[in-house]
Measured scan of single mutants.
Amino acid sequence: IDVRFTVNGLDVTVRVRTEEIAERVKELAKNGVDWREIQRIAEELNK
């Protein structure tokens, strides 16, 4: 599942395995978490 969001004007796409992880990623993006941090968290959750 590809999750797309915009952080500080940057369009970011993170690929995740499940809808649940996708929701977590969207939540982080909404809360203004840095995209590199979101990427790292997504990689952890995908394991």
Rank of each mutant, 00 (worst) to 15 (best):
K47V: 12
A42M: 07
E20K: 11
Q39T: 11
V25D: 00
E27I: 09
E37Y: 05
E27N: 09
L28H: 04
E44L: 07
I38Y: 01
N46G: 05
R4N: 13
K26L: 14
V14C: 04
L45M: 12
N31R: 13
A42H: 01
F5Y: 05
E20L: 09
L28T: 01
E19A: 12
K30Y: 11
V12T: 04
W35P: 11
E20H: 09
L10I: 15
E19F: 10
E44H: 07
E19D: 09
N8T: 04
I38A: 01
D2Y: 14
T6V: 12
A42D: 01
L45C: 03
R4T: 14
K47F: 12
E23R: 13
V3D: 01
E37T: 11
W35S: 06
T18V: 02
I41Y: 07
I1Q: 06
G32Y: 05
E44W: 09
R36W: 13
T6A: 07
N8Y: 05
E37G: 03
R15A: 07
Q39P: 02
W35Q: 04
V25S: 00
D2S: 10
N31H: 11
L10K: 14
E19N: 11
V3W: 02
T13N: 08
I41G: 01
V25E: 00
V7K: 03
G32Q: 07
W35C: 05
R17E: 12
D34C: 09
T6R: 11
V16E: 00
I38S: 00
E23G: 07
E27P: 00
T13W: 12
T18Y: 03
I38G: 00
E37Q: 08
V7Q: 15
D34I: 07
E44K: 06
V3T: 02
R36S: 13
K30I: 12
R4K: 15
I21H: 07
N31E: 13
N46A: 04
V25C: 05
R36Y: 12
D11K: 11
R24M: 14
E27A: 11
E37M: 07
N31I: 11
N46I: 02
N8R: 05
V33T: 11
E19S: 12
E43D: 14
N8K: 07
R24E: 05
D11L: 14
E43G: 06
I41C: 05
T18N: 14
V16G: 01
N46Y: 04
V3P: 00
R40G: 05
T6S: 12
E27Q: 13
K47H: 14
G32T: 04
E37W: 05
I21Q: 06
R40T: 08
I41K: 04
R15P: 06
F5W: 10
E19K: 12
N8G: 12
D2F: 12
R24C: 13
T6G: 03
R24V: 15
V12K: 07
T13G: 05
R4Y: 13
I21A: 06
V7S: 10
K26F: 09
Q39S: 08
N31M: 15
W35A: 09
I38N: 00
A42R: 01
E23N: 13
D11R: 10
L10W: 10
V25R: 00
E19H: 13
E44Y: 11
A22R: 04
R24H: 13
I21V: 06
A42Q: 01
I21W: 02
V14I: 15
R4A: 10
R36D: 14
E44M: 07
T18I: 02
E20T: 08
T13H: 10
E23H: 11
A29D: 03
K26C: 08
L28A: 04
T13K: 07
E27D: 10
V3G: 00
W35N: 03
N8I: 03
E19R: 11
R40A: 11
D11F: 13
I41S: 02
D11T: 15
E44D: 09
V33P: 01
V12P: 00
K30E: 12
V33S: 06
G9F: 04
V25P: 00
T18D: 09
K30L: 13
I1H: 08
E19L: 12
T13P: 01
D34G: 11
L10T: 12
L28S: 02
F5I: 15
R4M: 14
R4F: 13
R15M: 11
V3K: 01
A22N: 01
I38D: 00
N31G: 08
I41M: 08
L10C: 06
R36P: 14
G32W: 03
R40D: 07
A42V: 15
W35L: 15
I41W: 05
G32R: 05
T6E: 10
T6N: 13
E27W: 13
E20R: 08
T6Q: 12
V7P: 01
R40K: 12
V14T: 03
N8H: 09
E37I: 11
W35G: 06
A22E: 05
L10M: 15
V33D: 03
E43T: 09
R4I: 15
L45K: 02
V12M: 11
T6I: 11
A29G: 05
E20V: 09
A42P: 00
E44I: 10
W35V: 14
T6F: 09
A29W: 15
R40Q: 11
R40W: 08
T13D: 04
V25K: 00
L45R: 01
R24Q: 12
A22L: 05
E19Y: 13
F5S: 01
R17C: 08
V25N: 00
I38H: 00
I1W: 15
K47T: 11
L45E: 04
V7D: 05
Q39M: 14
A29F: 15
V7A: 09
E43L: 08
E19Q: 14
V14D: 00
A29N: 06
K47L: 14
E43V: 08
R15D: 03
I38M: 02
T13F: 11
L10A: 10
R15E: 06
I41Q: 06
D11E: 15
D34L: 07
V14N: 00
N31W: 10
K47W: 13
I21F: 05
G9R: 03
Q39I: 15
D11W: 14
R24P: 00
I21C: 02
E44V: 08
V3S: 01
E23C: 05
D34K: 07
L45T: 02
K30A: 14
V3I: 12
G9P: 00
E19W: 13
D2E: 15
E43A: 11
T18W: 02
R36I: 14
R36L: 14
Q39F: 10
R24S: 06
D11N: 12
K47Y: 12
V16Q: 00
E20A: 13
F5L: 15
E20Q: 13
D2H: 09
N31S: 14
G9K: 03
E23W: 10
K30F: 10
